[in-house]
Write a protein that binds this DNA or RNA. Structure first.
Length: 911
RNA sequence: GGGCGGUUAGCUCAGUUGGUUAGAGCGUCUCGCUUACACCGAGAAGGCCGCAGGUUCGAGUCCUGCACUGCCCACCA
């Protein structure tokens, strides 16, 4: 059956077909609780209503590459996909949709709103899964989860209740970050600080019942409406006399005490600070120390509430203007100064955060953070790049309790019930809706309206996806997961929480409590101008669009080739174009090979049955005959070298190195040299090949090619799958190349002698080509070449055995091997092994040739001088490793030889 | 305010523990549609490895300072 491939590789239909095949054939499905020796990973769950962006593309590509590599290498490999309900993000999206219809969620009511979000999820959810399927990600779709599935919700309740029982969950009134637009508390991590030039206002507070006043400095004058004190430093001489007196709060008239507190910094502003316990975390602490009342002056939307008196109803920024205006009018605004400061903004919506005194649920982190810290420092968890170990540990060491309640509607409801019985107020925390208050027995219970922070459920995933709290075979088999691949942007949000919660809940797990043993943190994908991709900047590159243009394999390869740990990726489409060309190169190599193999099968010279590659091990089982021609021994050796390096690179997440090695092997060695050489044995379309020579060529060609496809497969799964099946006429030894064995280097197959010989021939051919180009020899014209070397030189033998090869690749009509040195004025090329020249009626520019030689000579001279200086240095001889000294000596000798040759050539030119 | 990274060819980036000649892709220039591939082939040009010191027999690689640049963390009004 002829392999009738189109001339150019068209990825679209081919990729779609294999993507479908992998899913429908369940190629990547792992049966439950299969084995203990496994490689398992959890996909960082994207937002259920999200779209694939470049960051996902990188993250997923890297995981897929590793999963495919490990799977082909023989590990039972499980990669679990899923999506996150993304409480706040999803709720915001649906609210935006409602707003477009002129509605809001409060009109709808909670129940209807949540139902609406589920509708939205059913409608728009699944886009990202479709995209992932289209990308052929080797996840186990049988195990796909959604964080609000009933089983996972049950696990969330269980986890929360257990933490509560252990005293690690508490409810309390503290200053939290409040987003007035989202109308919910958010954690410290969800707050971003932005440097701005603000104003520092100095305001005079008159003292009560006497002359005098005190001037306070503030960046937020409107909060004075909630002031309950003025603080000065106890050691501040300036204010010694006013401590303990009362000041009259302007605009309000309330009398507030002047207190002494260490927190007031004499160096800053006026040294006197207004104290607003309800709206500033520091002021709150002062309030606690001095038993100050706290007056909340805002409502949920950060408008002034009735406590703000005349200002009630005003937005906080309007109120600021009005307050300043009124102070000015009363002559109490002393100064306004520019002041560099950082404003806290909501990570989601960029609204300025309001620190607010409010009742929330918290998780006590001390003990869990300690344990997480220990897991990292003790090496139970290993970070790559290792800088993240320190970042992780620093964070763990400086952690505040985690505010886990959110005043949102979409999310996991907090499993707590408030007793409404008169005077009880008890809160019952329970796994299921309780019938009665556990304290007073009243049946009048109301469920807590807050939901949990998204990251609470996400933090449990490494064990909940395997069935926790039940004891399941999966949990035994796959927990801890082997590796987590993620971006540093969710290191604290997610990675840190998984470690804390995993270590806590899985502490008695026989295989260890940490959720994963390895963490690989990858770079951020930026646009070609190094800008962070963001929707607001409008520079987001849609990976699907890029894929449609270049093919998935090319995009994956681009990301892999640019993914060196530690450096952000400035995605450049020109590279992707280059890797599309690489795919095309592979495609055409396949066409060439099939063309020959098909002909050989027709002529009965060769059949697939002779192909030992049709085993799980493939090229690893191929024993190259000792009598095989140089090029065969060479390419097999090079293949094994490449596969060794590729395996090493993958093991250390050096994707770019793996990509680069495969690329160079396939294109520069296999295509540019091996295929070109092997053509001589295959015979042209008209020629009749030497049957025996051809059979050997087919065997080697196919084995190496098939092996290269396996090597490349994790990086370019689609094109390799397509061609791999074509090799076997649709009857491959496994259902997918992804299930074939990954090439493992066999050092027995390294052939240093063949590589050395081949290098000599390559140098010779390159030198002749260079001479031809310089002399302007017509491409079709064959010219004789003369090679000069010492008689009996080893290279003579190589040359004689491989004459045909040189003649063909260098378009040489005849080769004369001449013992001795060359003479005459023709330009020539020299290596340490030989000199070569071509015989041709030349139009060469002798002046240019002289310049070239002079330049080269000068370069060599500099190098040789450096070398001599080193070799004359006794310290160097004494301290440098013998191999380095030896290498330098050899190089110096070689340079002397080459320089001598160059000088002679110059002399001849000068004659 | 603390901490971390980057600076190598026109562009985008490699360069593993310091060791002889710093690499690749794209782009540029010169040839060539050679029967796998013009998404190709052959050849070539192009680099005081940010600046200044230091350690060392030896520095793109280690140390210090500086400059530019990016990021993370942070409760001083």
């Amino acid at each position: 059956m002829p392999h009738d491939l189109p001339k150019a590789y068209e990825p679209g239909a081919i990729e779609a077909r294999w993507a479908e095949y992998w899913v429908s054939e369940k190629i990547f499905t792992v049966p439950s609780g299969a084995a203990k020796a496994a490689f398992s990973m959890l996909l960082p769950p994207p937002n259920v209503t999200g779209n694939l962006h470049m960051g996902h593309m990188l993250n997923h590509s890297e995981m897929d590459i590793l999963a495919r590599w490990r799977r082909m290498s023989g590990d039972l490999t499980l990669w679990v996909p899923g999506t996150d309900h993304a409480s706040i993000a999803t709720q915001m999206m649906v609210e935006r949709q409602l707003a477009a219809e002129g509605k809001n969620r409060r009109e709808l009511g909670r129940e209807a709103f949540v139902e609406r979000v589920w509708q939205w999820k059913r409608h728009y959810g699944g886009v990202i899964q479709q995209q992932m399927k289209r990308l052929g990600e080797s996840v186990d779709w049988q195990r796909e989860y959604f964080t609000m599935d009933e089983s996972l919700s049950r696990a969330v309740r269980e986890a929360f209740v257990r933490l509560h029982e252990e005293g690690l969950v508490y409810r309390g009134k503290y200053i939290v970050n409040w987003c007035p637009r989202c109308t919910t508390a958010i954690s410290d991590l969800e707050v971003k600080h932005e440097e701005i030039t603000g104003k520092l206002y100095e305001i005079r507070y008159p003292l009560s019942g006497a002359e005098g006043s005190i001037v306070v400095a503030t960046t937020r004058p409107e909060t004075m409406l909630g002031d309950t004190a003025v603080a000065v430093n106890p050691n501040d001489e300036r204010y010694r006399d006013v401590i303990g007196r009362m000041a009259v709060l302007p605009l309000v008239g309330r009398e507030i005490p002047v207190i002494a507190d260490e927190w007031a910094n004499p160096e800053f502003g006026t040294g006197a600070v207004k104290v607003t316990p309800a709206h500033d975390a520091n002021d709150f602490q002062i309030g606690v120390r001095h038993q100050l009342p706290s007056i909340d002056i805002f409502d949920d939307n950060a408008r002034m509430n009735p406590n703000a008196g005349a200002y009630a109803g005003l937005d906080r920024f309007k109120a600021r203007e009005k307050v300043l205006e009124d102070l000015e009018a009363q002559g109490l605004l002393v100064a306004v100064k520019d002041h560099p400061m950082a404003v806290a903004k909501c990570d989601r919506c960029a609204t300025v955060i309001e620190p607010r005194f409010s009742t929330q649920w918290f998780v006590k982190v001390d003990s869990m953070a300690q344990r997480a810290l220990q897991a990292s420092s003790g090496g139970e968890i290993h970070f790559t790049p290792d800088i993240y170990k320190k970042i992780f540990e620093d964070w763990m060491a400086n952690l505040h309790d985690w505010c886990v309640s959110r005043q949102l509607w979409w999310g996991h409801p907090i499993p707590a019930w408030h007793c409404a019985a008169l005077g009880c107020e008890h809160i019952t925390v329970a796994r299921a809706t309780p019938a009665a208050c556990e304290k007073c027995g009243s049946g009048d219970l109301h469920q807590e309206t807050d939901v949990l922070d998204t990251w609470f459920s996400a933090g449990l995933l490494p064990f909940t996806v395997f069935g926790w709290p039940d004891h399941t075979p999966d949990l035994d088999a796959f927990y801890p997961t082997s590796l987590l691949v993620t971006g540093f942007d969710i290191l604290f949000f997610w990675v840190a929480r998984m470690v804390m919660l995993g270590c806590h809940f899985m502490q008695d797990h026989p295989q260890g409590s940490v959720p994963f043993r390895e963490v690989y943190i990858h770079a951020l994908v930026r646009d070609a101008e190094r800008q962070k991709m963001s929707k607001t900047k409008g520079n987001v590159l849609d990976p699907i669009a890029v894929i449609e243009k270049y093919g998935t394999d090319a995009v994956r390869f681009t990301l892999a080739a640019m993914a060196s740990p530690g450096t952000d990726i400035a995605f450049s489409e020109s590279r992707t174009g280059g890797y599309r060309a690489f795919a095309n190169k592979i495609w055409n190599a396949a066409r060439f090979i099939f063309m020959n193999v098909d002909r050989a099968q027709q002529e009965g010279v060769w059949s697939l049955a002779d192909f030992a590659g049709a085993t799980r091990n493939g090229i690893a089982d191929y024993q190259i005959p000792a009598t095989a021609p140089l090029e065969d021994r060479w390419i097999v050796s090079r293949f094994h070298r490449a596969s060794q390096k590729v395996n090493e690179a993958f093991a250390e997440y050096r994707f770019h190195e793996a990509a680069q090695i495969i690329y160079a092997f396939f294109w520069n060695e296999f295509c540019d040299w091996y295929i070109e050489i092997v053509k001589l044995r295959l015979g042209g379309p008209d020629g009749t090949p030497d049957r025996q020579a051809a059979a050997g060529a087919y065997a080697c060609l196919l084995h190496v090619f098939e092996g290269a496809l396996r090597l490349l497969s994790p990086l370019m799964p689609f094109i390799t799958e397509e061609i791999w099946h074509a090799i076997y006429d649709g009857q491959p030894p496994q259902k997918s190349v992804a299930l074939a064995a990954y090439p493992r280097a066999n050092s027995q197959q390294f052939d240093a002698a063949a590589e050395e010989e081949m290098r000599g021939l390559q140098e010779l051919i390159e030198n002749i080509r260079n001479l031809r180009a310089e002399a302007g020899v017509e491409p079709r014209e064959q010219v004789p070449a003369e090679i000069f070397a010492a008689p009996g030189h080893g290279f003579q033998q190589t040359l004689e055995t491989n004459q045909l090869l040189v003649r063909k690749l260098a378009a040489v009509s005849a080769i004369n091997f001449l013992p001795g040195a060359l003479s005459g004025t023709e330009s020539s090329r020299s290596t340490s092994q030989f000199d070569v020249r071509i015989i041709f009626e030349r139009k060469v520019d002798l002046g240019a040739e002289r310049d070239r030689l002079t330049k080269e000579l000068k370069k060599m001279e500099v190098e040789l001088n450096n070398g001599h200086r080193q070799l004359a240095n006794e310290q160097f001889l004494a301290k440098a490793p013998a191999a380095v000294v030896e290498g330098l000596r050899n190089r110096a000798a070689e340079l002397e030889l080459l320089m001598e040759k160059a000088r002679q050539a110059l002399q001849r030119l000068g004659e």
